[in-house]
Computed example of a mutant assay.
Amino acid sequence: MAEDKKIKTNSVKAWLLAARPKTLSGAAVPVMIGVALAYVDAIEYGTDSFSWIAALLCLFFAFAMQIDANFINDFFDFVNGTDDAETRLGPRRACAQGWVKLESMKKAIAITTCAACVIGLPLVYYGGLEMVLIGMICVVFAFLYTTYFSYQGLGDLLVLVFFGIVPVCCSYYVQLHTFTWQVFLASLACGMVIDALLIINNFRDRDNDREAGKNTIIVHLGAEAGLQLYIGVGVGAIILGGTFLMNGHILAFVFPFIYLVLHFITYLKIKRIYQGKALNLCLGETARNIFIYGVCVSVGLLLL
């Protein structure tokens, strides 16, 4: 608490904490995988259409949308009473702690939303007008996730779509103007890996969420089912990674087993700790594991 008092309202440090820079790895991983797949296939098809500018635009758009979603989540969870400075178990949030004023957060949401649109607009040149529709859907669901879907137990589905299918497939599409079954299955695997972060978050907050009327999948199914879901998404991602093996990308299939070992170790820690703020250690480990998965798949693709 003493540390909280040192953070001045609307200071640079306050905004950095509100942006949650550690979550940016989750935004980067799907783009990394989509770009790696596109780069390898561009070489295989003998096309010179691959553009690093388009790849960077996808990455920066993902970063902007992630920060925007974090601001939206911070604001609406506090307004709806889901975040409480006294009962919250997870990392402290800017609005709930008074680090950022509500009016300032409203303006920040407007700015980051516009910034994401400006960053993403040039992708129309590479991927066509359909990129406008994709961008609009991303913005709309960034709001709907916190304000509606997360309360209905549909947050995991949205993670699968917007941290798996959409970023991986779109990062590939803007390069080669198509996508394959391999890309789609890789996007599902990526979404499952990143969903582990939401699962551990909801597992930790299950009691508070139940009281707040936030019916996450963990609240619906219970803690034990949540544990099985956590280990299940990791194993499922590896199984889906068999598509790399069938397409000759042996290392892209083998390297992620490093991730699976780390994922299983984190699962055992979650099972042992089971509840309380101590689970935040597992939250950090899960974020690390996600990044390692992205590196393993991307490097595995590029090396062979």
Rank of each mutant, 00 (worst) to 15 (best):
G284I: 12
S11N: 11
A14S: 10
I273M: 01
A19E: 04
V299H: 10
K22V: 13
I200W: 10
W52V: 09
S104C: 09
D48P: 01
L102V: 14
I258W: 12
S150N: 11
T147S: 10
N202L: 05
T113P: 00
L160R: 15
V297H: 05
R210D: 09
F75K: 00
K107M: 09
N10D: 15
S49G: 02
V295P: 02
A196M: 11
Q66T: 11
L229M: 11
G164C: 08
G226S: 06
L158N: 02
F253N: 07
C138N: 15
L56C: 15
I238F: 15
G90P: 02
M1R: 09
A110I: 13
V299L: 14
S104T: 13
G164M: 06
M131Q: 04
G164D: 07
F75Y: 12
L157R: 07
D205Q: 03
Y145G: 03
D195I: 13
T266P: 04
A18S: 06
S171Q: 09
C170F: 14
F50S: 01
N215L: 13
A42R: 00
I194S: 08
A55E: 02
L133D: 01
L185F: 14
A225F: 11
Y39I: 03
I265E: 14
G127H: 06
F50N: 01
E86D: 14
M246G: 04
Q97V: 10
T286I: 04
I290S: 05
Y172C: 07
V219H: 01
G128E: 04
G120S: 06
K101M: 11
G164A: 10
L154C: 03
Y45C: 08
V299C: 09
Q66C: 02
D84G: 04
D4C: 08
